[in-house]
């Protein structure tokens, strides 16, 4: 007769196999289409050589619930620039006001570019647009731990087409609120 420890071990084994078998434990698992997939070699965790601390991977998108129904106006940028124009800072002040009044909300600032230029460079430019807004929010008194960034480069334009009227609407920072 099976003792309880063996039973638990068997249940754990079956659960493990189920997870591996369905491949649905992670968003990236969908491509395990071969019968004997090779395990790709990546480090389990990564340490910063200067600080000696683990580089953390906790993202609000994965750990918090999205907050819908609150409209925060996009911030627009000049071509190939992540400098905040004086005309745009009032929008960032509105966002700071919301965060200071809603302590349970955290924010992901999302950077976007127009379609021109290299996809790789645009991803970095979009990140720096998001970082410029993040820095301004921190200057306005929002705790930096409540602020994260993500860049979509030129992958998610707000408006389709080409020409300056379209491009200027696509060079932007957007805001996504999450509940802690």
């Amino acid at each position: 007769m099976m003792n309880s420890r063996m039973m638990i071990a068997n249940i754990a084994l079956v659960c493990g196999l189920l997870m591996v078998g369905t491949g649905c434990e992670s968003w990236w698992g969908g491509d395990d289409k071969t019968d004997t997939p090779e395990i790709t070699d990546v480090p389990g965790s990564i340490t910063d050589s200067e600080t000696g601390k683990n580089v953390t991977g906790a993202r609000f998108e994965d750990t918090c619930k999205k907050v819908d129904g609150i409209t925060l106006s996009p911030v627009y940028f000049a071509f190939d620039s992540y400098a905040l124009a004086p005309s745009e800072t009032a929008k960032i002040e509105q966002v700071a006001k919301h965060l200071l009044a809603n302590a349970s909300h955290v924010l992901v600032v999302e950077g976007h570019c127009d379609a021109r230029g290299s996809a790789e460079y645009n991803l970095a430019l979009g990140e720096n647009r998001a970082q410029a807004i993040r820095g301004h929010l921190a200057n306005l008194g929002v705790d930096g731990n409540r602020l994260q960034t993500r860049s979509f480069g030129s992958e998610k334009p707000a408006m389709a087409g080409s020409g300056e009227a379209v491009w200027k609407m696509n060079r932007r920072g957007e805001f996504a609120l999450y509940q802690k």
């Binding site: 990236w28 071969t34 997939p37 395990i39 906790a58 991803l123 994260q148 960034t149 860049s151």
Partner: peptide, 13 residues
């Protein structure tokens, strides 16, 4: 033709 793993998925870029 095989598996994949995230190498870096930290906050930001």
């Amino acid at each position: 033709g095989g598996s994949r793993r995230p190498l870096a998925s930290f906050k930001g870029l």
